[in-house]
Nucleic acid binder design. Sequence first.
DNA 1: CAAAACCATGGAGTTAAGTCAACGGTTTTG
DNA 2: CAAAACCGTTGACTTAACTCCATGGTTTTG
Lengths: 123, 123
Amino acid sequence: MRIGELARRSGLSRDTLRFYERQGLIASAPGAEATNSYRDYPEEALITLEQIADAQAAGMSIADLAILLGQLEAADPDSFDGEAFLQERIEEVEARIERAGRFLGSLRQAKAALVAPPVRRGP
Amino acid sequence: MRIGELARRSGLSRDTLRFYERQGLIASAPGAEATNSYRDYPEEALITLEQIADAQAAGMSIADLAILLGQLEAADPDSFDGEAFLQERIEEVEARIERAGRFLGSLRQAKAALVAPPVRRGP
DNA sequence: CAAAACCATGGAGTTAAGTCAACGGTTTTG
DNA sequence: CAAAACCGTTGACTTAACTCCATGGTTTTG
């Protein structure tokens, strides 16, 4: 598909998609009939973009994501000590989720306090 | 306590603390004997800073945090429709945690695949 | 008591992640 | 077939969240 369709379907701007491509997060090929300069994005790009959104929600930087996506699809295990890298990210993300969960608790508590103001119960 | 101690105890830089103070996230008072210009930070600042870290892990911006911290301590319910604001943040954070959890799953799977490479099992 | 460590202020600089504008070429559509 | 919609490239711009620097005063410490 062309970039416009990918933009519409992913909800991202064309500029963002081009930015991601420059960073190596997604890839495109020259259009089938290379009569023009239009590029062709594969269907899987949509999946990759979803993964990128997940990863960003988990606090990953685009630089780290580029490493990850590159390595995970290279599937060339012994060329890179991915285990240590992955373990570090896993721990970071776990910590982040814990923190976010704590904050969510505070938010819910704050809302409950607003809905039922702190008046003393009882006679 | 003075800013240096707060920095050491919180693990943040003095510059970051001053930045947070300018943004209204923490507060300080003139030192007890105002013979100098040194400011005094209350013990609770450490707790607030932890909350800020949690909130940031949950994807909150400092601008939003300033609103939240201001409103939650104002405790002046009917001056601000905090319920809607809180509900929006709650939903954002929930969505973010879900995404992050999905990503964590991918990371764990990727690591498992590295540790036990994808060779076909069986005789 | 002097050097080292600390403090406040103001303003400039940095990084990440986009976003915008302008240009000229290409398809699509009425 | 012409206007509208789309495409690629380049490079400047923006925003958030810090970070650094310089200056000049204040405490602490050996």
